[in-house]
């Protein structure tokens, strides 16, 4: 079937199968930041924004994204660059495999709630698993970024 959608601001038309997953679709369109970490919607590595909302692309049919806007980290480099340096300062990037999903959902969080508490951050990012960092460094990084914005 034919799929038309907007991927990172670009109109894309492609032939897909009815059961093509959005994850595989975006990866095949050069958005390799989007990762598969599980098959059970538990890890958050495949997070993309669908019409601005964070969703799991591993469990979204590409077909459902027809006519809608899909954003991956490839399309949010500048917005991400604003704060990922603070994560890097903590060394909390670690292996990096979960980073894109975590960064995407952090962007979603900060758009929704520009001044979150630590508990807000933990709750919003609960669906983003990380096995390396122990999470605390990610939190310190986000906190440092938020503090830097307040001057």
């Amino acid at each position: 079937m034919e799929l038309k959608l907007t991927l990172n601001g670009r109109a894309v038309t492609a032939q897909i199968e009815a059961d093509t997953l959005l994850l595989d679709f975006v990866r095949s369109h050069g958005c390799t930041s989007v990762k598969r970490g599980c098959e059970t919607t538990n890890c958050g590595l495949c997070t993309v924004l669908l019409d601005g909302k964070p969703v799991l692309s591993c469990a979204t049919l590409a077909a459902r994204a027809a006519g809608r806007t899909v954003t991956t980290l490839e399309g949010l480099q500048e917005e991400a660059a604003d704060f990922v340096g603070f994560i890097a300062d903590q060394g909390a990037d670690q292996c990096g495999f979960c980073n894109p999903g975590f960064v995407m959902n952090t962007i979603a969080l900060l758009r929704e709630n520009p001044d979150p508490t630590d508990d807000d951050i933990r709750a919003y990012l609960a669906g983003n698993l990380c096995r390396c960092s122990g999470y605390e460094g990610q939190l310190r990084g986000i906190r440092a970024y938020l503090d830097s914005r307040k001057g």
Binding site: T41, P54, V55, L56, T60, A108, L125, A126, G127
Partner: peptide, 12 residues
């Protein structure tokens, strides 16, 4: 609902 997996899951 707030303990169900994560925000992304609950958006779906």
């Amino acid at each position: 609902v707030q303990d169900i997996v994560g925000v992304q899951f609950r958006n779906m």
